[in-house]
Each structure stands twice: as C-alpha cells, then as structure tokens.
Design a protein around this nucleic acid. Sequence first.
DNA 1: AATGAATGAGACTTCATTCAT
DNA 2: CATGAATGAAGTCTCATTCAT
Lengths: 204, 204, 204, 204
Amino acid sequence: MVKDAEQTKQNIITAALELFTEKGYYETKVSDIVKRAGVAQGTFYLYFPTKESLFIRILNNTNQAMLEQIEHIFAEKVSLEMSEEEIKESLFATIKGCKTMYREHRDIMYILRVHGVSQIPEVQKIMEEADQSLHRIIIHLFKKFQLFPEYDQNAYEIAARAIHGMLTETCLHYIILQESTEEDITKVARVLTEMIYDMTLGSK
Amino acid sequence: MVKDAEQTKQNIITAALELFTEKGYYETKVSDIVKRAGVAQGTFYLYFPTKESLFIRILNNTNQAMLEQIEHIFAEKVSLEMSEEEIKESLFATIKGCKTMYREHRDIMYILRVHGVSQIPEVQKIMEEADQSLHRIIIHLFKKFQLFPEYDQNAYEIAARAIHGMLTETCLHYIILQESTEEDITKVARVLTEMIYDMTLGSK
Amino acid sequence: MVKDAEQTKQNIITAALELFTEKGYYETKVSDIVKRAGVAQGTFYLYFPTKESLFIRILNNTNQAMLEQIEHIFAEKVSLEMSEEEIKESLFATIKGCKTMYREHRDIMYILRVHGVSQIPEVQKIMEEADQSLHRIIIHLFKKFQLFPEYDQNAYEIAARAIHGMLTETCLHYIILQESTEEDITKVARVLTEMIYDMTLGSK
Amino acid sequence: MVKDAEQTKQNIITAALELFTEKGYYETKVSDIVKRAGVAQGTFYLYFPTKESLFIRILNNTNQAMLEQIEHIFAEKVSLEMSEEEIKESLFATIKGCKTMYREHRDIMYILRVHGVSQIPEVQKIMEEADQSLHRIIIHLFKKFQLFPEYDQNAYEIAARAIHGMLTETCLHYIILQESTEEDITKVARVLTEMIYDMTLGSK
DNA sequence: AATGAATGAGACTTCATTCAT
DNA sequence: CATGAATGAAGTCTCATTCAT
C-alpha cells in the first residue's frame, strides 16, 4: 500500500535525523537507523540507495523549507520613513524570526554545525548556496539604507558575513546546543537588535 | 636515539595534520598517516595509543599556543584616556592579531570548523574552554569601557558571543577556507574594526 | 483467465531468456526479470518456485526441442550404396542442419557455453544427456559404414567426441558468438564436410 | 618476514584454486577461501584488492605457462621430408603434449570450461588471446604442408577451430572432467592422431 | 625503537524469497 | 491472480589495533 510505504520511509527519515543529531553522520550506522525505525536492514535500501543519499535528502528538505522561511522573514518590513522605534521593532522581529527558524530546524543545524559533514560535496554545495542567499538579502538592506556608502562589494560581503556570524554563533549556543524557551530567544534577539542597530542605523 | 624518536613522532604529527586537513578526521586512515610519515603501521602505536589520542594531542598543541596568543593579543592595549583614533587603532590591531593567529593555525581550524570532529567528547571540551576564555576577555573589555551598562551577565555573554561570531565567521571564509594575503587580512580587520567600534564606543 | 496466466508465464520466460543471454545466470536478478516482464516481484513466485527452477525449465524446453531436431537431422539419409558425391551432399546437409539448429537456439547455447551454469547439478545432467544422445548417433554411423573397424567402444567414443568437438567449437564461434547469415553457415558446413569426409570415408 | 607473506599469499592462491575448481567462481566466497587458507578475512585483502583480481591473477599465471608450453609443444618437429610413420609419430607427440599440458592445468581449465567466468571482461580477453595463438600455429602448419591449398583465410580459420575443437572437447571429457592416467591420455592421443592424419596428410 | 603481517569485528549493501492485502 | 513492501541471511570489503620478530 502506498500509505505503508510512505510511512516506512518517514519512519526511516525520522529515525535517521534523530541519530544523526545524537551521534553525527559518521557515527550513525545504517544498522542503528533501521533498528530505531523498526524495520529490517534491507528495507532501508528500498527507499534510499545509500546512507549518503538519505542524508542529502534530509538536508535538502530542511534547506528548502529554510530558504522559503528566510524569504518570508526578511520580506521588506522596514522603510526609510519609519521612526527609530519602528525600525528597531522590525529589526527585532526579523532577528527573532531567524532564531525561531533555526530552532525549528535545530536537529539539522546541529548536525551541520557541530558534527560537520562536509566530506560530502553535495552537502557543501547546499550549505554554500544557503549562506549566499542570506548574504544577498543583508547586502540589499545595507544598500537600501545607504549604510556604509564608502564600501565596495567586497567590503559589503565582509560586513554581511560578520552580521551572519553574529546570528549563527548566538544561535549555535543558545538555540542549537540547548533547548531554548520563547523567553530565551526573545532575550538573545533583543541584545542582537541593539547591537546591530547601533552598528548600522544608530551610528549614522 | 631520543632525537630519532622525537623526529618520528613529529613526522607522524605533521603527516596527520596534513591529512586531517585534507580529508577530515573520519576519512583519514591510520594507514594514510603512516604512509605519508614514512613509517610502518606498528610504529604509529609506539607513539599514540589510538588515532583519537593523536588528534587530541594535535588539538591540544594548537589550543595551548592559541590561548597564549590570545592573552597576548588582548593584553591591555587600550585605556579610557585614549582618543577615538587611538582606540580604533588599538581595536584594529587586536582584530588583526586574531586573524593572523587564525591564519597561523588554519589547518586545525579548518578541521574543527569544516570537517567537524565533535563526536569525540574530549574535543568538545577543549573547544568550549577556548571559547570561554575568549568570551571572558571580551566581557572584561565591555565592563572596562562601561559599554552596555544595563546588561546582566547573560546579556554580556550574548554580546560576547555575537562579537566572537563576527570574528570567526569572517575568519572562516576569508582566512580558513582560502589562502589569504596580508592585505586581505588587513581589509577584513578594517571593516570589522569599523563595525565593532560603531556598535560599541561609537554609539555612546 | 487461463490465457492471461499463460501469457504472464511466457512473458517471464521470454524476459528471463533475454537477460540470461545478456548477463548470464548469476548476474541476472529476479528483480531484472520481473521488471522486463512487466510484472510484480511476487508474481514471479506464482509461476516458478525459484530462480533456478525457471532456468531449468527454459533449458528443458530447448533441450527437448533440440533432441527432436537432432533425431530428424541425423535420420538415415545416407546408405552404403550412395556415390561419393551423394554421401558428401548428405553429410553436408546433416552438418548444416546441426548448425541451423544451434543458431535457432543461440540464446540458450550462449548461456551454457559462454556464461556457464553448471553449478546447478540438474543442468549438468541435462547437458550430459544431450551430449550422450548425439554421440550415440555418431557412433552408429561409424559402425554402419564400418569406419575404424579396429576401434573398441572406448575409441569410438573418443572419435565421436572429437567430431562433436569440431561441430560445437565452430558453432560457438561462427554461430553462437556472432550473428551469422545463411551464407556463413553454408561456408562453415562446407569446410567441415570436407574435413570429416576426408577423415572418415575419404581415407578408406 | 618476506617469506611469511609470500607463503600466505600462496596459501590463499592454492585454496582459491581448489575452491574455484570445486564450486566455480560465483559460488566460491571469500570467506570460503580464507577459511581453507587458514587466515583471517582481512588477510585476503592484504594481498588481493578484490576476489576478481585474485581470479585474474590465477588465470594469468596459468595462461602464461600454457602459452610457453604451447610454443614448445608445437615447435617445428615435422618436416616435409619425413616418412608417413615419422610424421604420424611427430603428430602424436604434439597431441599428447597438448593433452598433458591440459592435464597439468586441469583445475583452471575446469573452471573456465565447466563453470564459466565470462562475466569478467578481463577473463574473456585472456581466453580469446590464448585461442588465437593456438589457431595461428595450426594455420601455419596447414600452410607449411600445403594442405587445403584452395582455402582462403576464413576457411583456414574454420579448419583450425575445428581441429581445436577436437582437441578441447576430448580433453574436456577425458582429462579435465576426470582423473586420467598416462595410458588414458595415450589412447586419446592415438585416436586423434589417426583422425587428424587421415583428415589432412593422409588424404592428399 | 621499528617493522609489517595478521586480525576480526563490523560496516555497507544485495537479493532471493515471503506474505499481507 | 496479482501486488510490492518487507525480510534477513549472507556477501564483500575496511580499518583500527595487535604482536611476533
């Protein structure tokens, strides 16, 4: 039945994601995955040709979802006419949106950031593309608000990466590495909002 | 002779570091290491009880050196009496010092950040301690300059991590992932100096 | 319906024969067969208890047919009263009949001779019986024409096998291993006719 | 020690040849080989990268030896000036030499002829080359004695193959498939000598 | 101090066969 | 009759580690 097959596949994906999160890609064996999914060894290969392909599949799923969420989070919510308070509020919402998104995909972020899977070229490619698209959005905002007017493209990229680093490093510790409450996220986002605002609009 | 033994050990360490950098911990086999080091398989185990212990040994070497360098880089070079120009210059020197240090230890940073080796608990511990000590220094500076006076300890840590993230993310891309010239480093450090100055002293 | 069932079975047999010919018995998987036959995996086992039994079934089909053809080909077409020309013509017809028969069953001959399937005891038995019956006919002809009057039974068998070897080796290369035209077959048969005639009647 | 290594390798080769002979290539598992050789599973892969490579290695060994033997066996022992008796004796010696050679390499011949290993392209290539070189020699003799003067190259090849078939088919049954005594071989060679002499020189 | 052959547990993967629907 | 998901035994191969020399 179609339903059983889909269910089995999902069970395998779920079990794998859990295990990759717990032990990393390399330390997770196909035998662990099938054991947790409650299926036989051979069943795994009915759905995924290799362990690697399963991982890429999971990564792509998440990546797809995150890219869409990023679009949405960064959708033009600020305008030049806003007051300082309004801009800060919008910035805060954006940052918090990011954090929440990372929390939602905590498992896969954990694997990527903590365990590292970059031996697989496909994985590297996906990650780079994801980074790129976030940088594009940040640079777009820089230009819109005419921040750093003296910067060249290279300097913009450095600045975008720096902002990106602020977001991911704090996410890593407060969201990915530990369970975090709504309140925790709010606090982190609040601090980052202040810092970023000061660094950008606040100092102009 | 003692000298030969020391040399052999060093050959193994060097070969291993190269290979870990090229292929990551999991994809580097003991057989690869001994081949490159030009010794027999058994010789490896004369110097290191396990492959893991070799990695930890390498990591510790680097870590030790980096901690000392960090102390030195962040040694009180700024004071409250300095002019804006002087402070900026000092900040720039510090950031550039960090970058240069990362470049020096590019290999091991590459392994840790790109390949990921956190399956090994010992490795996690070492990395966390390194992070902690950098954060302590940053927070100390925050307090010295009475930045963010309204922050509690938690908020300070978030801010420190955010600064840390700016440094490491830009290092990752401009120094660890690619060969970088003195000039490249200077440029990255210059941009970061501006950003951090604006974010902290500049906005007060 | 009975008709559909028979059709399904035939589809499986046809697909299997093609695949066995292309890849040999061991490299042909049941999954390949059902895929080409356009039926589900389980359907296979509705008609054949095992993969091996399917092969034996195919082999038996062919063997049955070939035995009958051999009878027919070697049916007494020569008599002691014939002229040299007539005998040669009859010999030629016989040899060519053999070749044509081999060509007709090229697939299965290919599998047996090129891929080898003799791990299966049943298969060995069938092949041996087929050989035996051909030898009996050849020996019968030897005796009829009083060739090799000094031979004992053992020597007759050796001679029969030698003739058999001439036929099969040339068949293997000119008929089984390559597509062959009517003309090709004629040529091979013509050469063999000369050789065999010289070896037997011609030298008496 | 070099000696141990060589010995171990030889043990593996010997065990493998025995098993390939008994069960064929496909039914012989690496685990069978190491068990019989008295070494651990991993040891196998110290000497041979794959099971296939071991087989090819064995085949090449034999093939090399046989080619040299063939050269020797067929070395010009006949001349146009010889008497019928002398020629027959020389022919007999040649045929018997072939038989003896096949007996010496009975194992590998058995595998090739009975089990079939032609899925492996390398194996096919080696076998074809071996056949070719035998045919060349036979054709050379045809021409030397001006047998079949009316034949074209193609007809020569057919005739050579036919002779080859006589030799191999009788070898297969009297030498490869069963233990054979010196006497058995002599008898088979005697019969073949008569047949081939009649077919060629005898009828001119 | 060094060698390198040997080990064996265990990884990934395949595939003939079963069985609930 | 037919399906196709599921099974699990068994195969090939890897590699960190040991040990006799």
